[in-house]
Design a protein around this nucleic acid. Structure first.
Length: 188
DNA sequence: GTACAGATTGAG
DNA sequence: TCAATCTGTACT
């Protein structure tokens, strides 16, 4: 069973979609090859209230405008001058909310190939050329339900990574979700 | 125009 | 512990 996730999956409250992405498969077409990995770690960003969000305060910039699209669009950007970060927009049009995909467990091969958001994009060959892509229609990148059942008790909710600048109120929120014990979850 | 820091990573 | 590397953003 391989079913591409539809608009209705993403156009939901962000925390629900963020959790439900665990166990789904990110699929990327690279030339003639299909590369896939199970999503094992995600984070939610919920602007404009979320101080850690690029859309905090309702800010709109050339970089973050894809966050405002209806759920299912790619928001991808470069951090630290060298690492791409793959996000998928969530919720309704006009709401700057998204899910950051932080780690994948490759279908085959070394589980450390995509155990972090920067490495995930490197392995999947994702960059700015995917900006704004609609993953419910794209032939370049999408997400599939392959019938994997995730035990809710195996899902850990933890504070998000690398956003201490947002202050304790937002840094403490347990909006990072991962599969307990999975070898592909990022280190920090 | 200039300064500065970041949703990271891997080496030392 | 720290540098790599560069764009968005704020401020002069």
């Amino acid at each position: 069973m391989r079913r591409r996730l539809k608009r209705s999956f993403y156009a939901r409250p962000t925390l629900i979609a963020t959790r439900d992405l665990l166990g789904k498969y990110l699929v990327r077409k690279i030339g003639g090859e299909l590369r896939a990995g199970k999503i094992v770690e995600t984070e939610a960003y919920i602007g404009p209230l979320d101080r850690a969000s690029h859309a905090y305060g309702g800010k709109v910039t050339p970089r973050n405008r894809a966050e405002y699209l209806v759920g299912g669009h790619v928001y991808i950007y470069l951090v630290y001058g060298m690492y791409w970060q793959l996000n998928i927009s969530t919720s309704r049009p006009g709401r700057p909310e998204c899910v950051l995909l932080r780690a994948l467990e490759p279908v085959s091969g070394d589980p450390r190939l995509a155990n972090g958001p920067g490495k995930l994009c490197r392995w999947m060959k994702l960059d700015g050329s995917l900006y704004g892509e609609d993953v419910t229609r794209s032939s370049r990148v999408w997400v599939e339900d392959r019938g994997v059942r995730v035990n809710p008790k195996a899902i850990v909710a933890a504070p998000r990574i690398g956003i201490d600048y947002a202050g304790p109120t937002w840094a403490r929120k347990r909006w990072r979700f991962y599969l307990r014990g999975n070898p592909a979850v990022s280190k920090s």
